[in-house]
């Protein structure tokens, strides 16, 4: 890819005690690219996603965001995280705040926006994810799919350069998966740079520029989706695809 690199990982290694969860990871994500990371559970794909905004620290290697190396803890790291939106498997909405407050909180605390201005922006984003009518409710009053769409709006409210999705549909009932995927598809069409850890092969096929296949802490394949799904090069990927695509 000849585009501007936005995320660069070089020789990244991470251990949990003895377990070598990320092994010599090299990965570049260009501006506007949508990269889907797939692989069997325990392959390190979620960990990879979480290292990009330093929710997980690494033991060696380098991670750069827009040319800048990731800072250590502190103000600089907080600043960087505000540029990287993150959506979690378990939504992680703030349970004591309404939907509107969830989306506004970061804007007020981090971006220093006035409350009215933040609420205005929040309503626009809630409209965009189809939840404008739910603004006054608490997270527990929403379905899983609705909560995840709020979480996406909350991340977008910071106007991030890149969005990370850590298995965003894995905790959802089947009929709610599509409403979340549609929001993500729309984001991809709007040109957002996205790293998506998922098992949704349909999304990978239709929205991704590249598919990164991970197994046992390594990047095994990194290719265009159609190529990958029709002609996987590695035995490991063929085996994985045969297991998930059969049904």
């Amino acid at each position: 890819m000849a585009v501007d690199p936005l995320i660069e990982l070089r020789d990244v290694n991470k251990y949990y005690g003895e377990l070598h969860v990320l092994q010599d990871i090299d990965l570049t994500v260009g501006k506007g690219e949508v990269v889907v990371v797939i692989g069997p559970s325990g392959s390190g794909k979620s960990t990879l996603c979480r290292t990009i905004n330093r929710l997980e620290t690494i033991q060696s290697g380098q991670i750069r965001l827009d040319g800048q190396p990731l800072p250590e803890e502190g103000k600089a790291l907080a600043q960087l995280r505000s540029e990287v939106g993150m959506v979690f498997q378990s939504f992680n909405l703030f349970a004591h705040k309404t939907v509107l407050q969830n989306v506004s909180l970061g804007q007020v605390k981090v971006r220093g926006r006035k409350k009215d201005e933040a609420d205005q922006r929040s309503r626009e984003l809630l409209e965009r994810v189809g939840l404008a009518s739910q603004a006054a409710k608490y997270p527990a009053q929403l379905s899983g799919g609705q909560q995840q769409r709020v979480a996406i709006a909350r991340a977008l409210a910071m106007d991030p350069k890149v969005m990370l999705f850590d298995e965003p549909t894995s905790a959802l009932d089947p009929e709610m998966i599509n409403e979340v995927l549609e929001v993500m598809q729309q984001l991809a069409r709007d040109g957002m740079t996205m790293v998506v850890v998922t098992h949704e092969m349909g999304f990978a096929r239709s929205a991704a520029n590249r598919v990164v296949f991970m197994a046992d802490g390594r990047v095994v394949e990194d290719r265009a989706p159609e190529d990958f799904f029709t002609h996987p090069e590695s035995e490991r990927a063929r085996d994985f695809l045969s297991k998930i695509l059969k049904h």
């Binding site: 907080a78 505000s82 979690f88 378990s90 992680n92 909180l105 605390k109």
Partner: peptide, 29 residues
């Protein structure tokens, strides 16, 4: 839940903002 703290931090909130805005208000209850 630790995830809420992670979500706050990933929005760019500092440790004290996360504690005072997200964690403690729920902990008090």
């Amino acid at each position: 839940p630790t995830g809420q703290g992670e979500a706050a931090r990933s929005l760019g909130m500092t440790f004290s903002q996360t504690l005072s805005g997200v964690v403690l208000p729920q902990a008090f209850r």
